[in-house]
Design a binder for these strands. Structure first.
Lengths: 151, 151
DNA sequence: TCCTTTCGTCAGATTAACTGACTATATATC
DNA sequence: GATATATAGTCAGTTAATCTGACGAAAGGA
């Protein structure tokens, strides 16, 4: 077929980010499934990323993750049903509940962080230690600029 | 509240990629809406990215985008209804149709490429020309490695 | 000609988000 | 202290973007 895509050599920065992000996600969640947590999906990271060490309220989680309470409740519900979270009443506020990690949930968080570091190390192997370091620092700068604009 | 997230200083590479990718996407599709194409959503890029200049078959598009024919058909349907695509019978195969861009579709593709370049230039302003160049090259290397592994 | 593969569609399910409306509890104001 | 307003979480319903399975029609090979 002589029907090559139009955007053949035109790889936008967005496309590069998407491809690398998706590959990383695939590796991390694939490995997590292999380690015994096949029920954890990428969307769940919104919960793990934003939970405080002593647990957090649903509303707080939703706010941090930039999503609605309802959407966060849906994610928490799934993780709770799978035994990664438990939720206890907030003694200081009768309306609220505190969501916190179970032991199994702690294991998932630890595995997620470990696997991310592993994948990052594998990237460094592939493109070079130095370049990988600069890649990370460039992204950190960029993200800081984004967060400075829209806090 | 002394309930900061666990992953506070632990920004994984995946998180950095996600944040920058999402910010870029938001800028590009926001600007695209402002330019008169509010109906174009990020998922549609799977179509624009993979269409050949003379149009392509649905099956080809799906294969290139790494999704099912049904999913691609759903995206194409929306773009067709909005007048960005038309589909004509494939003269060489009675089962197939060729999907191609209308003038309006060409305008969207051009705008997408232009806006991506604009955002990339804005990133260079924020983090420095040199660093942005290295960022792009590091990502290109990484993506090449990914594609070398799983072709 | 007959068998198998391929192209696209129909039908239905799932995931991950959304909006709007609501209850119960807290907090602030008079 | 009574009343008004704000906040925490839930219920119900919707949408977008994927998936799987089953299928009819056309093409291609033996």
């Amino acid at each position: 077929m002589d029907d090559r895509p139009i955007t053949e050599q035109h790889r936008t920065l967005g496309a590069l980010l998407r491809l690398s992000y998706e590959s990383m996600q695939k590796e991390v969640y694939g490995a997590l499934a292999a380690r015994g947590f096949p029920e954890i999906r990428p969307a769940h990271s919104a919960v793990f990323r934003h939970l405080g060490p002593a647990g957090s309220r649903l509303t707080t989680l939703a706010e941090r993750a930039g999503m609605t309470k309802q959407s966060m409740a849906y994610l928490v519900e799934g993780l709770q049903a799978a035994g990664h979270l438990r939720s206890v009443p907030d003694s200081s506020d009768g309306r609220a509940r505190i969501v916190r990690l179970t032991a199994r949930g702690e294991a998932v968080l630890a595995a997620l962080l470990a696997l991310s570091a592993e994948v990052e190390a594998r990237v460094a192997e592939r493109i070079g230690e130095k370049r990988a370091g600069r890649l990370r620092r460039a992204l950190e700068l960029w993200v800081a600029a984004i967060e400075g604009e829209a806090p």
